[in-house]
Design a protein around this nucleic acid. Structure first.
Length: 423
RNA sequence: GUGACUGUAGCUCAGCUGGUUAGAGCGUCGGUCUGUGGAACCGAAGGCCGCGGGUUCGAUUCCCGUCAGUCACCCCA
């Protein structure tokens, strides 16, 4: 279709009725955040390129090949937000939010990454995430993991699995890196090409390789858990006991390493088999060094990001819930009736908080009832010549198929009737 | 970025080894039907067979390119 414009590759329009699912999910997210005492932050869709280069890490895939970077007319290099955390930290610093003690923020909105699209992976996608600043202890780790888990559990996603790991801090990570290098170097020639590259760039990533050729060497590699320094070890052990007390099931997965530079100590992922290869529904962890890296004070932080498209994909796979009937369909038969009904429709829309549907074409009653059915209306409000003559309205319950006659004059009675019926 | 598969009506798909006017189901519209609907029956509208090029007397079908989707890798939410 070169003649007609199409949405750019990897982007999508969200239309009714699916947009209703988005609204529902966002509603739950706002309620969840409120319960945990998090405030919403909204930041610009683009930032200076430098922010992400410094925040995300120069050698990460995101920065090296996935950013939508452009120059504006003033010659500034700008980048469409590829992730929220760096932007949130920037905003928190700019507005001095971190000078007033701990800070809890959450966000919902789009991110942009130039990737090859496939299901569950798009060039514009949406994330819900939280950032908890100011607490170095594992209580904060538990808090953010609980939030993610609550959301997932609230939807009864039965196959969701929480994977956790610790990737140490400045004292033990270099040690572990060296140990990994020493472990893999003898096998350099037999490793996959990707893994040879990874060994140089980011040896931790190698643990996540799916190439069967690498398997045996990965199996025999030292685990990070065995090489954590005392402080990191204690942090991790305490978090695990907290999770147990909170009855949040988890598995320690040494292959969880995260692709962004700023993570340290706790990292976690929530995965679902319903997502195929893009199995990560939610990913996060601790990033105690990031605020300082971006020019701020030494403030510890922990957070996560959850892929909204992926989450909705799971909910859809879990089965469509039959939509309940809601609201009413206003049906006028004949010009006179249509004229008489119009003001009543306006009034109902003002006073009821369920939908009032209306069709203004001249149709047979059956055709109107079909439309009411398609709209999943609970009631049909019918005004035809008979009712008009009698000064009445016919209120039909489309579920029980029962009729009631009401005086036409009194919208009040009608509204009371509907409210009373609990529509 | 790498490899593979797929693009036919609004949607889901059929179309045998190239051969006249391109098929179904669902949906839409109309009728049976001024009065209890989700149905049934009858009828209609709706297609540059993704787009461009090539091979051929002839291409929806074969080849190349391109755009888009899907799967895996890479990476990640």
């Amino acid at each position: 279709m070169p003649e007609n414009p199409a949405a750019p590759r990897g982007t999508q329009d969200i239309l009714p009725p699916e947009s209703e699912d988005w609204n529902e999910l966002e509603g739950r997210i706002h309620a969840l955040a409120r319960r945990f005492g998090y405030g919403e932050i909204r930041t610009p869709a683009f930032e200076s390129t430098e922010l992400f280069v410094r925040g995300v890490g120069e050698t990460t895939d995101i920065v090296e090949k996935e950013m939508y970077t452009f120059k504006d007319k003033g010659g500034r290099s700008l980048t469409l937000r590829p992730e929220w955390t760096a932007a949130v930290v920037r905003a928190a610093l700019e507005h001095h939010l971190l000078t007033q003690g701990p800070l809890r923020l959450y966000y919902i909105g789009p991110i942009f990454r130039y990737e090859r699209p496939q299901r569950g992976r798009y060039r514009q996608s949406h994330q819900f995430g939280v950032e908890c600043f100011g607490y170095a202890g594992p209580e904060a780790d538990l808090e953010v993991i609980s939030m993610a888990w609550e959301l997932v559990r609230g939807y009864e996603v039965s196959d969701a699995a929480l994977n956790i790991n610790s990737i140490g801090d400045e004292t033990c990570r270099p040690r572990y890196r060296d140990a990994l290098l020493a472990h893999f170097r003898p096998y350099l020639s037999t490793l996959s090409e990707d893994s040879r590259r990874r060994l140089e760039r980011n040896p931790l990533r190698l643990l996540d390789s799916k190439d069967p050729a690498d398997r045996p060497y990965i199996e025999s590699a030292p685990t990070f858990e065995s090489m954590l320094c005392d402080a990191c070890k204690e942090h991790f052990e305490t978090l695990k006991s907290y999770l147990e007390l909170a009855k949040i099931p988890y598995v320690v997965n040494p292959r969880i390493v995260r692709g962004l530079d700023y993570y340290g100590r706790t990292v976690f992922e929530i995965t679902s088999s319903l997502l195929g290869a893009q199995s990560a529904l939610c990913g996060g962890g601790r990033y105690d060094g990031l605020v300082r890296e971006l020019g701020g004070p030494d403030v510890p932080a922990v957070g996560f990001a959850l892929g909204m498209e992926r989450f909705l994909m799971i909910l859809r796979a879990l089965g469509d819930r039959a939509q309940p009937r809601r609201g009413l369909q206003a049906i006028a038969l004949g010009t006179q009736a249509r004229v008489a009904l119009a003001p009543l429709i306006a009034e109902l829309r003002r006073k009821l908080d369920v939908p009032t549907y209306a069709d203004y074409e001249e149709r047979k009653l059956l055709a109107h009832l079909k439309i009411a059915d398609r709209n999943r209306a609970r009631y049909a409000l019918i005004l035809g010549s008979q009712e008009l003559a009698a000064g009445e309205l016919l209120l039909r319950d489309l579920e029980t198929r029962s009729d009631r006659r009401l005086p036409f004059d009194s919208a009040r009675v009608l509204i009371d009737t509907l409210v009373e019926a609990g529509i």
